[in-house]
Write a protein that binds this DNA or RNA. Structure first.
Length: 515
RNA sequence: CGGGGUGUAGCUCAGCUUGGAUUAGAGCGCUUCGUUCGGGUCGAAGAGGUCGCAAGUUCGAAUCUUGUCACCCCGACCA
């Protein structure tokens, strides 16, 4: 049992922080609400970026970069947008510092006060809209399909590592189209891209659906989302895709000359996913022993742990490990890595140079138990233990992080394909496990009492007939802390009784408490 | 911004009620040496703190008083 990690049952919130700390994914920073993403955590973000970016390119998008600072007046141009974000905007008001009168500190130089303050972007619809207005003149300029990878800042009152930080990393796609249909098609296409990514790479099952009026993005006509369920029964919005209609086009004057030679407003969309995904990944898969990383985004796919006493045993064990490595990563990489790792206690070998996934050999002078815990807490999918007994048997002991499963694999059994197969198998097991949990945690309610009962005792998703309305949602939230997570695409069909009003409705929604 | 709580070593904390033998401590972590090595060995030596900050009371303050700052938890807000 891990000594440094609280159990989920005892204190779920503390468990989450302990897992992050033990795996060295992130740290609190001196800046309130802002985290430091440590190398182990950033490597996971890089894997997410690489995979998502490929999917964006495959669907015809290109990357660009827009400024961090947005003129304050831009925020005011779209009425709902400013209302939604005004409360959490950080402002830049000066361009210079000067020494304080006592000479000990610094303060803003009053003479450097900006004519118009800048807002640190909470999202970039406005400044991108401004640029699109300049770039788009004709229907021939459409569609514009641009994504940017960047940081944004939202001055949250309460923050949690990865799930909600004042500054976070994300991607935001912004597209402009000739017709409403194309914009709608794009909005749904990117929602599918998100869902596929989260399921195929992070092994987290999601529910696709639409947001209600009160939960949608400020300035959108419609917001679609993917919702995931965490192990404590709370929901987490993993990604959103917005159909902005002509709202931003009208606010920023994005007009084009149409095929009929008349001026038209463009139809725009935006969609984003953030470092919150790392929080989702942790909460969906990890256990009381620490982090469990889905194999497809794991920076280290396997850790080899030598076991020996004395120099003689060490030499034979290491020699055998090199043979295993040769099978897994190739003789050439073993040779290259030898030079690269010269002075490293933990030696690192490329398993896949495209995804930058590695295999490590932990040669530190500590007890094998230490090493087991070390890699276990970091969520490495597979550990290979090699000691004198294994060398004698010509095999390695393979342990799986997910379920502690063990098997002995003969030297000839090791190969890159073998490892890929193992990782795929683990991915599938992780997804199935998470899916089984999600299904078991999705319940139906036919009355309001039933809804309250489920939410207060078991949590999870509650599916029920409900006609969304801001007033009734607010009342339900006040009583249950739960909100409509989405109106799922998959509807039972037919007519039912609204759990709150008792009136007939055809709409089914998913209620849950959320992060 | 409302309610509650906490500030002592890198981390978790004891000491504070009743001021003085505390030359400020413990466990973990860290460094060095030895030992051990199949799920967190053991031992020795060592580094590390103006007790959040400021003023006051006192012969004497981590301990009492006042002020101040920071952080945490619960609520309102949220990718």
């Amino acid at each position: 049992m891990a000594k440094n990690i609280k159990t989920r049952k005892d204190d779920y919130a503390q468990w989450y922080l302990d897992v992050i700390k033990a795996a060295q994914l992130a740290d609190h920073s001196p800046v309130k609400g802002c985290m430091v993403i440590r190398p182990e955590g950033y490597a996971i973000w890089e894997a997410i970026q690489r995979d998502l970016d490929r999917r964006f390119k495959e669907t015809g998008h290109v990357n660009a970069y827009f400024p961090l600072l947005i003129p304050q007046s831009f925020l005011a141009k779209e009425a709902q947008h400013v209302e939604g974000f005004a409360m959490e905007c950080a402002l830049v008001t000066h361009s210079r510092l000067q020494k304080t009168p006592d000479g000990k500190g610094v303060q803003p130089d009053p003479s450097s006060k900006l004519e118009e303050p800048y807002v640190i972007r909470p999202t970039s619809e406005t400044i991108i809209g401004h640029m699109y207005a300049e770039w788009i003149q004709s229907y021939r300029d459409l569609p514009v399909l641009i994504n940017q990878w960047c940081n944004v800042m939202r001055w949250e009152m309460r923050t949690r590592l990865f799930l909600r930080t004042a500054e976070f990393l994300w991607q935001e796609g912004h597209t402009a189209h000739e017709t409403a249909d194309e914009a709608q098609e794009e909005t749904l296409r990117m929602l599918d891209v998100y869902a596929d990514f989260v399921q195929e790479s992070l092994a987290i099952p999601v529910v696709k659906g639409a947001k209600t009026e009160s939960e949608k993005f400020p300035g959108a006509d419609t917001t679609y989302c993917i919702e995931a369920l965490m192990q404590d029964g709370k929901a987490l919005q993993a990604g959103t895709s917005h159909n902005l209609g002509q709202n931003f086009a009208k606010a920023f004057d994005i007009k084009y000359l149409g095929r009929d030679n008349t001026q038209q407003f463009a139809w725009t969309t935006s969609w984003g996913m953030s470092t919150r995904l790392i929080g989702a990944m942790i909460m969906a898969h990890s256990d009381d022993d620490g982090l469990v990383v889905p194999p497809r985004v794991a920076p280290v796919v396997a850790a080899i742990i030598p076991v020996y006493k004395g120099d003689a045993e060490r030499a034979t064990v290491m020699e055998f490990i090199n043979k295993i490595l040769g099978k897994l990563v190739g003789e050439q990489e073993v040779a290259f890595a030898g030079a690269r790792n010269k002075n490293a206690e933990i030696k690192s070998y490329f398993f896949d140079k495209v995804t930058n996934q590695r295999i490590v050999v932990d040669g530190r002078d500590t007890r094998p138990g230490d090493k087991q815990y070390h890699w276990e807490q970091r969520g490495v999918p597979i550990r290979i233990e090699v000691g004198p007994r294994d060398v004698a048997a010509g095999a390695g002991l393979v342990k799986r992080r997910l379920d502690r499963g063990k098997e002995t694999v003969a030297l000839d059994g090791f190969s890159a394909d073998w490892l890929r197969g193992k990782l795929d198998e683990l991915h599938k097991l992780m997804f199935d496990k998470a899916l089984a949990f999600q299904q078991a945690s999705t319940r139906e309610a036919t009355t309001y009492d039933e809804l309250k009962q489920i939410l207060s005792t078991e949590g999870g998703f509650v599916r029920c007939y409900f006609e969304p309305s801001p007033e009734n949602e607010a009342k339900i939230k006040a009583e249950t802390k739960a909100t409509v997570r989405c109106i799922p695409f998959e509807q039972a069909g037919g007519e039912g009784t609204d759990v709150y009003t008792g009136r007939p409705t055809r709409t089914q929604v998913l209620f849950a408490q959320s992060y």
